[in-house]
Amino acid sequence: MYTERLLRVVAVAAITSSVLSNPIPLTREPIENIPRGLPLVTDEVLLFDAPAFRTGEGNELTASIRMFTHIRQIDSSIISGALTTAIEALGIEVGNKAGNLFERTKLFFAIPRSGIEVDLNVAGCDSFNVGDTSKGGLLERNAAIGACGGALSPRTISGVAPGFFSSRPFEATLFPSHPNGFGVVSDVDDTIKVSNVLDKKQAVKSLFIDDHEAVGGMPELYSQLDGELGNPAWFYLTGSPYQLYPSLRKFIFEKYPKGPMIVQNLTLTDVQSILKFVLDDNNVRDYKIAQMEKLRSFYPQKKFLTIGDSTQADPEVYAEIARRHPDFIQCIWIRKVNEADNSDERFATAFKGVPQAKWKVFTEPSELAELDVATGKCN
């Protein structure tokens, strides 16, 4: 999806101008001499939407909390201009979309804050504290939140960071779910969002510049599934790094049933790691398999419909999980993308050992309209 040249050019442009976007001098490493503990007035907290699941025999819930803490960034037209110049030097027209470019790239160059803990409140549930963030400013941790009155409806997770004149709130959505019933795991790029991952230049435009565009017919299909499966638990599993989370979340919440998005914990302090994990299908495969296993640990009794596309490793990922846990995967749908490897040989190899009745490769979402996932009619 990304090219090394693009990443290096954008990195240089942002780094050279970021002294104007941050309240302290830039370094490529976390700031070590600032006190740790609760956030400071110079800190920003990005809290991710979280799934929640029941633990034990009672109604007690556990939330899977993820967050990123970094030095607060101040918007600057100079940064936007530098990034625009860098992208246009590659022959990609930015036009009036410089705002998209700036918003989608700025977190790549945020200065992480390690050792940060926060107090969080979930509406109607127990409050709790989580910490410490890693050297990269990231935290992923399960937290007990009580029974929440027995209700499993979405609710707000919130906290505050200190400000110069008043506290600055941050929040996300908690999505509790029954231990049984149905769930849907959906890929994002070229499954529900036009990303052009097989065309490097168009992929860059889709990623950083163009307004996000839904794949034709997919919002309608997902709305139909949401009703037919009785409001299932939705999860969006993407190989994209967490720096793209804000714009992707906005797009998904506007077009599709709401649910937590699972993104990779990658930072631009190590360019080679980004290239390794984002461009290498094997690493995307391993990452997605690990996340699917984690979901199963949260919801071992649920049955899942998994939806992906043929550009990267979705067929191989979902098939591997189906072989490991046949009762966990109800159906697998793979969208056939032009210019990808859509050969019969690929799918035969990928789905070896998976009953043919469980999986379907499709071109148009309308091909799925008459299927009944709830009864196992997958193709």
Rank of each mutant, 00 (worst) to 15 (best):
G91Y: 12
S77Q: 14
C125E: 04
E117P: 00
G99M: 09
L107F: 08
A63H: 03
E57P: 01
I111F: 06
T105E: 02
A110K: 04
A86P: 02
H70T: 11
L107R: 13
T85S: 12
L83D: 00
N121F: 13
R54A: 03
E60A: 08
I78M: 13
E103S: 05
S64Q: 07
N100C: 04
R72S: 08
G81C: 09
L61E: 02
D75F: 14
T105K: 02
K106W: 03
K106T: 03
T84V: 10
V118Y: 07
L120R: 14
V122A: 11
A86L: 05
R72I: 11
G124K: 11
A63R: 07
L83H: 03
Q73T: 13
I74H: 13
G95P: 03
I71T: 10
T85M: 12
E57G: 07
K106F: 01
A89R: 14
F68M: 10
T105Q: 03
A86D: 02
R72F: 09
T55F: 09
N59E: 10
F68A: 09
P112K: 15
D119W: 13
I92A: 02
H70P: 02
N59L: 12
T85C: 04
S80Y: 05
I74E: 09
A110P: 03
N96P: 00
D119I: 15
I71N: 05
V118Q: 08
D119M: 14
I116W: 05
E60F: 04
K106C: 00
G95R: 15
I116L: 09
E88Y: 12
D119P: 01
K106Q: 06
S76P: 02
A86F: 03
D75A: 12
N59P: 00
G56N: 08
I78D: 05
T85N: 10
R72V: 10
C125K: 09
T62D: 01
I79F: 04
K97R: 15
A98T: 10
F102D: 01
V118K: 11
S80A: 14
E57D: 12
L120F: 07
G81A: 14
D75R: 15
K106P: 00
V94F: 10
L83G: 00
S76F: 08
A110W: 06
I111Y: 05
S80T: 11
C125L: 11
L90S: 02
T105H: 01
V94S: 03
G91Q: 12
I92D: 00
I79A: 04
R104G: 00
F109R: 07
E117G: 14
S114L: 11
F109C: 02
F68W: 14
L90K: 09
A82G: 01
S64R: 13
